[in-house]
Nucleic acid binder design. Structure first.
Length: 570
RNA sequence: GCCGACGUAGCUCAGCUGGUAGAGCAGCGCAUUCGUAAUGCGCCGGUCGUCCGUUCGAAUCGGAUCGUCGGCUCCA
């Protein structure tokens, strides 16, 4: 039986209290932080200088089992503030929380067995309703999420009404680990990372094929929609970054080089370069919108602890574009960008996505009026397109508010990809202009946008989404021909060159190995089609087709196979 | 950057309380010419991340440093 999200949350929140009770029983000197339910589980934060070892976790799990077997009842009561303060006198973090509660309200506390916690609830009635608990990991976490506060030990876990449901969840986690793009990237020989350049991906020949196929598709879709591709320099001098505002807001993430007494910065964003192209000639209102697209390779010095495979790197390619338009064109242009992004995602089966609108951050440039104008424009566009969206306060880019796209992959995991950012600020700073119908100079609006976001991150997401089995058009090797014995090599080669003429990426496995072995390897390499050729095929001029998904498809003529694969590839 | 764990052959991993390294896979060689997920035999391969230190002696102990992983913070 499926449990509702609210039931699961209540159960997991109760599980976190049981965890805290177990920890307090075993380590009475531990100070308690907070312990909420989260998506897929729960955690509890503890202040414990010694940290928790895997041994400790085992002991804690055993203690949890004991508590659940004793089946304490969860009871609720409300107390006055001074009673709460004395009740939690030994818990400095709880005191912290109590002091922040409204003065005159009663304070809600929950108790089960020997354990009492400051808590709004709700909880299960008694511990045996929790069913199955599993502790998953231990990690440091700042008190109340701020770097300035002490770091506590956070124990993560999950809980389900039954052991079966827990097992299913653990299997899902295992499945996610198998899909890890870092593991698959190595196994499929797509890319690598090296100590010599932490956070800088190295693309191998096979990875480059996937990347280039992806970019071919991207270029085609963009040129059809009036985008013009440009390329701007990797490093540009200091003055430009002062002018753009990056120097003041982004410097700690920038790489620098000194040459001829000048400071150059490796670009962390492409916009300033593109602006120089815009400014290179006089623009008329008739020229707008101008859409400059750039697959810009940017470098950002991210903190060492945040790097994560292709998902978080220090050098990546943005599928960037900057649309320069008249103010009255903004809404239409944003609408077109949303359509384009939607169309690009559907190619990969990302049909479900969520949109967030992020507003002015603390570190921002530009006047309040500009921000207001920009935020209104984005709001209006989304409303006029009848799109549901959430507001994300204070999460905009430093030069303007943005719309972000979050997609769901084949495992239901959510990823942020595309972004549309509206910018009145850069045009001001760089004094961009166009000549209007009235013959006077006007200021254009700039829209920064990316559909995949980062090509590297997108590749990582695709690898996990497809579990490494990339669709035919993206597969580095599309067809592998497996001759049964040496005497079939000639026929295999002929077949291969005929396929290559259709633009199919094909390889012949002419190693002296048994067919079963070759199939196994091709299968592990996730090659979409295997053609097995032996005496039967060579004599009849046919091929035996095996698909990586559905196995043996039987024999067919070369033309039959060629038209099948061409249809699938287009 | 912070907390914690980890770092042994190309890969996956073993090596207890200190006595100068071991397996499987991959690679190479030979035999085999074999029909839908692993043919057999043999060979090669490691200054045990790096640097200091303790010790007669360090992959094993201590420190520093780099990198990776799980999180926090940050982010495309």
């Amino acid at each position: 039986m499926e449990s509702s999200a609210a039931e699961l949350a209540r159960l997991r929140h109760s599980a976190s209290h049981v965890l805290a009770q177990a920890v307090k029983t075993l380590y009475p000197d531990v100070k308690l932080g907070i312990g909420p339910a989260i998506e897929d589980g729960f955690y509890y934060d503890f202040d414990w200088q010694e940290g928790f070892t895997p041994d400790d976790i085992e002991k804690i799990e055993a203690e949890i089992a004991r508590i659940i077997a004793a089946n304490p009842v969860f009871t609720h009561r409300e107390v006055a503030k001074d009673e709460a303060l004395s009740l939690f006198a030994d818990e400095p973090y709880k005191i912290d929380l109590i002091n922040e509660l409204p003065e005159n309200e009663a304070i809600s506390i929950y108790n089960q067995g020997s354990f009492t916690d400051l808590c709004k609830g709700p909880h299960v009635e008694s511990a045996n309703q929790i069913g199955a608990i599993k502790l998953l990991s231990v990690a440091g976490a700042y008190w109340r999420g701020s770097e300035k506060n002490p770091m506590l030990q956070r124990i993560y876990g999950t809980a389900f009404p039954t052991q079966e449901e827990l097992n299913i969840h653990l299997e899902r986690l295992e499945e996610a680990r198998k899909r890890d793009h870092r593991k698959l990237g190595k196994e499929l020989d797509l890319f690598s990372f090296h100590e010599e350049g932490p956070g800088f991906p190295f693309w191998h020949p096979k990875g480059m094929i996937v990347l280039n196929e992806l970019l071919d598709y991207w270029r085609c879709e963009h040129s059809q929609r009036g985008y013009q591709e440009v390329k701007t320099p990797m490093i540009l001098n200091e003055d430009l970054w002062h002018r753009s505002g990056h120097w003041d807001t982004y410097r700690e993430n920038m790489y620098f080089v000194n040459i001829d007494e000048q400071v150059f910065s490796v670009k962390p964003m492409n916009c300033p370069g593109t602006i120089l192209i815009y400014k290179d000639s006089m623009k008329s209102y008739r020229d707008l919108p101008i859409k400059y697209a750039e697959l810009g390779h940017v470098h950002r010095h991210e903190k060492s602890g945040v790097l994560q495979g292709l998902f978080r790197v220090r050098a990546f390619t943005q599928d960037d574009a900057h649309v320069f338009c008249r103010p009255e064109q903004v809404q239409e242009e944003i609408g077109k960008i949303i359509d384009l992004i939607e169309s690009l995602y559907s190619k990969f089966g990302f049909n479900e996505y969520r949109i967030e609108l992020s507003t002015r951050p603390e570190k921002a440039i530009g006047s309040n009026e500009m921000w207001e104008m920009a935020e209104t424009a984005l709001n209006e566009t989304l409303k006029s397109k009848n799109i549901n969206y959430q507001i994300n306060e204070g999460d905009g880019a430093f030069y303007g508010p943005k719309i972000d796209f979050h997609i769901k992959d084949s495992m239901g995991r959510s990823w942020q990809l595309g972004t549309i950012q509206l910018d009145f600020s850069m045009p001001e700073r760089f004094e961009l202009e166009y000549i209007g119908e009235d013959g006077k100079s006007h200021r254009p609006v700039m829209i920064h946008r990316a559909a995949f976001g980062s090509i590297e991150r997108f590749m990582g997401i695709l690898i996990e989404h497809y579990a490494g089995a990339l669709p035919l058009w993206l597969s580095p090797i599309q067809v592998i021909i497996l001759p049964i014995a040496d005497r079939h090599h000639e026929y295999a080669k002929e077949t291969a060159s005929k396929l290559a003429e259709f633009g199919i990426r094909v390889k012949v496995d002419s190693r002296n190995e048994k067919t079963g072995f070759k199939i196994r390897e091709a299968q592990m390499e996730k090659i979409p089609y295997m053609l097995i050729v032996g005496d039967r095929e060579a004599e009849a001029g046919r091929v035996s087709v095996r698909s990586r998904e559905s196995g043996d498809l039987g024999a067919m003529s070369f033309d039959e196979f060629a038209s099948k694969i061409n249809a699938e590839n287009s």
